[in-house]
Write a protein that binds this DNA or RNA. Sequence first.
RNA 1: GCCGAUGUAGCUCAGGGGUAGAGCAGCUGUUUCGUAAACAGCAGGUCGCCGGUUCGAAUCCGGCCAUCGGCUCCA
Length: 597
Amino acid sequence: MRYEDSYLYRLRHSAAHLLAQAVTELHPGAKLAIGPPVENGFYYDIEFPTQLREEDLPKLEAKMKELAKLDQRIERLEVSREEARALIVDEAIPGMGAAVADYKLQLLEGIPEGETLSFYNQQRTDREGTLHRFLDLCRGPHVDSTKEIKAFKLMTLAGAYWRGDVKNKQLTRIYGTAFETKEELELHLHNLEEAKKRDHRILGKELGLFMFSARVGTGLPLWLPKGATLRQVMTDFLQREQVKRGYDPVVTPAIGSTQLFIKSGHMANYREKMYPIMESGDDEAYVLKPMNCPFHMEIYASQMRSYRDLPVRYAEFGNVHRYEQSGEVTGILRARGFTQDDAHLFVRPDQLLDEFIGVVDLMQCVLKKLGLTNFRARVGTKDPSSDKYVGHDDNWTAAQEAIEAACQKLGLPYEVSAGDAAFYGPKLDLIIKDALGRDWQMGTVQVDYNLPERFELEYIGEDSKPHRPVMIHRAPFGSLERMIGLLTEQYAGAFPTWLAPVQIAILPIADRHNEAAEGLARQLRDTVFDDRPLRVSVDDRRETLGKKIRENQLQKVPYMLILGDKDLEEGTVGVRSREDGDLGAMALATFLERLSV
RNA sequence: GCCGAUGUAGCUCAGGGGUAGAGCAGCUGUUUCGUAAACAGCAGGUCGCCGGUUCGAAUCCGGCCAUCGGCUCCA
């Protein structure tokens, strides 16, 4: 059953109404806007006469409990438009009338003529015998009585723009959650606590992957040895795949002349996301690049291209900087400086489908290797009612069909989302959730009709005439930062062996075993695993074995090799795996066989 | 950028108008040990920064900065 059709959904919707009822009683003059159920609960957007603070939430929650217990029946009323207006103005919040009805009236105006208008009412009589009605314009459905709302909690406050538009007034959003039983609520709160332990920002610090420094600047990560190792392993893997698939590496600078970015259109359309312009004082101005594409355009345009040269595939792990708004920066999932696993493919129209298949195949290869299964693929297509797009309709149709055909051919399930195309072309995005359930866009493939036009790119066709190539922009990881952040959360820091910064920790038991441990480390570092030398550390601190095991386990090292008198005598190593614990003594060769599985 | 919250030792956190506390980490010494924390001692802080109130501020107030949750925006 769809969540929207479930009892839980109705319960949460009713909980939102209950919250609104409590607000109208405790904060007269508050203007209700909109209060729907959402994935893990509900919210209500409200304009308060005086700004609500978090310490007000317990009072609201207590009021909600009190109102819930009264067993108020929740009744549906279907009314005409005139009645609806009258209800909103005169009665929705007793005594306040039109003064608090702004948003509801706007909502009413937004409902098309002919659609059924409904209200939901819940009412009570207080000790003095006064009737308190709470009526809210709402499509419903709801549960039958407020008594059913027993297990709920108000979570947090946030600002939210009316109708999601920055130009509108910012309302106060109260987030809450509700479940059918107290046990489910407790479980949910417990799960939230657990999820926090998977947060890449916490694990990144604990595992020594990366750090931030206020002296360096917001959103600018410093990669520590273990994190930098992870990056190397990942780029190395992708680079090899790309070589197999006919990509050529290019390298371009961190900054470029404003002339370049005027030509690409970034100065006009992307300026607010760019770090300030650098003036050199002699009529030159430069910007720190927010994207790599303009540089790759220049490389393509630098020479005559024949139809026989295409496709041209330029790949670069390009370091870009974007001045994200301060409130948007989130660890390495949303940094201001990051590295795209970028490439630009310049293709003939007749090559588009095959190139797309190639790119989607690469993406699937990457996802498989990384062990990511919990992603969604979304094909963003043109919004037919908008005219903001560049490029000819025929091209768009061909490109959209190529994207879908490639996904179908390779068995990648996808959803089509009209209006999610870029203005310069349709695209395929991979979307993954983080530990806290937030969606992040990862890998992307985008067809671009805009830049080849702006840079007047050409190739000479069979007919000896110039033609315009199509450009595909693609990044299977999306960015190294975001991918590593999400992988960290997905694996809770316990990376698969091929990816783990330290794959094997050697633990000598006493000082007299240190030399043998170093020897073993050298031997292992000469051993190739997954096409790379093994990454090995030696823990020769003067600590007990138990302590070394504990700390290496907390560092999520996949294997520990314990070396003591018995092993030196018998030519074995004591093997301990991160997942299965003590595996006992075995010959090194036996361990290495196991490792390759 | 906007709304709300948080900021005490390297880390996790307690305390709170009258001279700063714990555990872990660090350092020193002892221990040389077989599968998740040996023992003892020592050292470590302008309580995010700036200003105000006060006889006195880490504590109260204001501003700023950083971080966290959300909105908007995005790889």
